[in-house]
Amino acid sequence: MDLSSEKERLITQLIRETTSGNISWSVQEVPYSLGQATENYVPLYIEADYKNVKVGVYEIRYKYYMDESEFHWMESLGICIVQGHGLVVWKVEEYSPALKELFNIASYQASGIKNILGI
């Protein structure tokens, strides 16, 4: 099995487990190694425990340079596995419809909208 299919399989399992209520997502501090020594910015990082492993999904903003001095901010999504005290041991930052779906579900759950509405 190749890395791409394993990533998609993990995302699919996380979506399934989240929608069935077996995983709870919460907003957490961005792991140190995602936010240091880079111009990238992570405005939202959401984490859950899945099979005793910390899994994070996040939005990342990065500079896309048109030339040396002109750039535009671009956005992407990422998924990572975190061990210890914020050490990211695996990450993928790319667009995929499945990752977008997972990020949307996780951010909805972490937002607490159901509690606000009394659902």
Rank of each mutant, 00 (worst) to 15 (best):
E39C: 02
E39Y: 11
N40P: 00
N40L: 00
Y41L: 00
V42S: 01
V42Q: 01
V42I: 11
P43G: 00
P43R: 00
P43W: 00
P43M: 00
L44T: 00
L44G: 00
Y45G: 02
I46Q: 01
E47C: 09
E47N: 05
A48F: 04
A48Q: 06
D49Y: 09
D49C: 07
Y50D: 04
Y50H: 13
Y50M: 03
K51Q: 10
K51T: 08
N52I: 05
N52W: 12
N52D: 15
V53L: 06
V53H: 12
V53M: 13
V53C: 09
V55Q: 09
V55D: 04
G56H: 02
G56R: 00
V57Q: 01
V57S: 01
Y58L: 04
E59I: 02
I60N: 02
I60A: 02
I60L: 07
R61P: 01
R61W: 04
Y62W: 06
Y62I: 04
Y62H: 08
Y62Q: 04
K63T: 09
Y64R: 10
Y64F: 13
Y65M: 15
Y65T: 11
Y65I: 08
Y65A: 14
M66C: 14
M66P: 08
M66F: 12
M66S: 13
D67K: 07
D67R: 11
E68A: 15
E68V: 15
E68F: 15
E68L: 14
E68S: 15
E68H: 14
S69G: 15
S69Q: 15
E70S: 15
F71S: 13
H72A: 10
M74Q: 13
M74S: 08
M74N: 07
M74D: 10
E75G: 05
E75N: 05
S76P: 06
L77H: 07
G78T: 00
I79G: 02
C80P: 05
C80M: 03
C80T: 01
I81V: 15
I81M: 14
I81P: 02
I81N: 05
V82T: 10
V82W: 04
V82P: 10
Q83C: 12
Q83R: 12
G84N: 15
H85I: 11
H85A: 15
H85S: 14
G86P: 11
G86Y: 06
G86V: 12
L87F: 13
V88Q: 11
V88Y: 10
V89H: 03
W90P: 08
W90V: 01
W90A: 03
K91T: 07
V92F: 01
V92K: 01
V92S: 06
E93W: 05
E93S: 07
E94C: 05
E94A: 13
Y95L: 12
Y95Q: 10
S96V: 03
S96T: 13
S96Q: 05
S96R: 03
P97A: 15
P97Y: 13
A98N: 12
A98C: 06
A98K: 14
A98M: 07
L99C: 05
L99T: 03
L99Y: 10
K100F: 11
K100W: 08
K100C: 09
K100R: 13
E101C: 11
E101T: 13
L102I: 07
F103R: 06
F103T: 11
A106H: 07
A106P: 04
S107A: 10
S107G: 01
S107T: 11
Y108I: 04
Y108D: 08
Q109G: 06
Q109E: 14
Q109H: 12
A110W: 09
A110V: 09
A110T: 07
S111V: 08
S111T: 09
S111G: 14
